[in-house]
């Protein structure tokens, strides 16, 4: 039984269950959708995010002085309002409290780093259990005919990685953020994004298969 799961590919339904459990579990426990490219971005710009986290902590710790500074800033802003802004304020008597849909949750820098680290660790563990751990300089299967040799394979990997990074950054999410979390929440942007990248993958796969 165990051999069946550690050798070769896992059954598709187990993969689907594992992915849905991960996405749902993350959202349930962390109160925010799973998005690996977001974690990666947070870690990549760690210096800026560290500064932001420290500032947030300082604001939380000194809430009274922050509120006082805010009141001063409000008074200064009121003194230089435009005529249009004054009319806008007069038109609004009182703004009711907004019922916000829960407290905003941002995954911390350390949590993002740990998540990314364990993606790599999980990959290593899977391969070691599989007993097939080797450094590959060739693509597997029939793709070997298309990009034979490291001189083609490695640039192809780099180009693919750059395109994935570029697309992920442009669309504001990746397979986990849009594909798992976004589609599960029926987010229109995620539905379009997932349909686009999966659709493109299917078309490219057909084209490559016809070339091989």
């Amino acid at each position: 039984m165990i051999e069946q799961f550690v050798e070769g590919f896992w059954p598709f339904w187990l993969g689907a269950f594992g992915l849905s459990f991960t996405a749902f579990g993350f959202c349930f426990f962390m109160k925010t959708p799973l998005g690996v490219s977001g974690f990666f971005r947070r870690v990549l710009f760690f210096r800026a995010n560290l500064q932001k986290e420290r500032m947030q902590a300082a604001m939380k710790a000194n809430q009274a002085s922050v509120q006082e500074a805010l009141q001063q800033a409000t008074a200064a802003h009121m003194a230089e309002l435009s005529e249009d802004d004054r009319k806008l304020l007069e038109a609004h008597k009182k703004v009711p409290k907004t019922k916000r849909s829960g407290k905003a949750v941002v995954v911390s820098l350390s949590a993002s780093a740990i998540y990314l680290l364990f993606i790599v660790v999980g990959g290593f563990v899977g391969q070691f259990l599989n007993g097939s751990w080797t450094v590959a300089y060739q693509p597997s299967g029939s793709f070997n005919d298309l990009v034979a040799g490291p001189e083609l394979f490695i640039p192809a990997l780099i180009l693919g990685g750059v395109l994935v990074g570029f697309g992920t950054s442009m669309s504001g999410g990746c397979t986990s953020g849009h594909g798992l979390s976004g589609t599960a929440r029926l987010q229109p942007g995620s539905l379009v994004s997932t349909a686009s990248f999966f659709g493109t993958a299917i078309v490219v796969a057909f084209i490559l298969r016809s070339l091989l």
């Binding site: 947030q56 604001m59 922050v66 509120q67 805010l70 009141q71 409000t74 802003h77 009121m78 802004d85 806008l88 304020l89 609004h92 009182k94 703004v95 409290k97 907004t98 916000r100 849909s101 829960g102 905003a104 941002v106």
Partner: peptide, 21 residues
């Protein structure tokens, strides 16, 4: 929902002009 500054505006009625503007 995720704006930290809006959270501060909600705490104090004297700064609600920001919300309106």
């Amino acid at each position: 929902n995720r704006c930290q500054m809006y959270g501060l505006f909600e705490l104090d009625d004297s700064v609600e002009v920001w919300k309106i503007l």
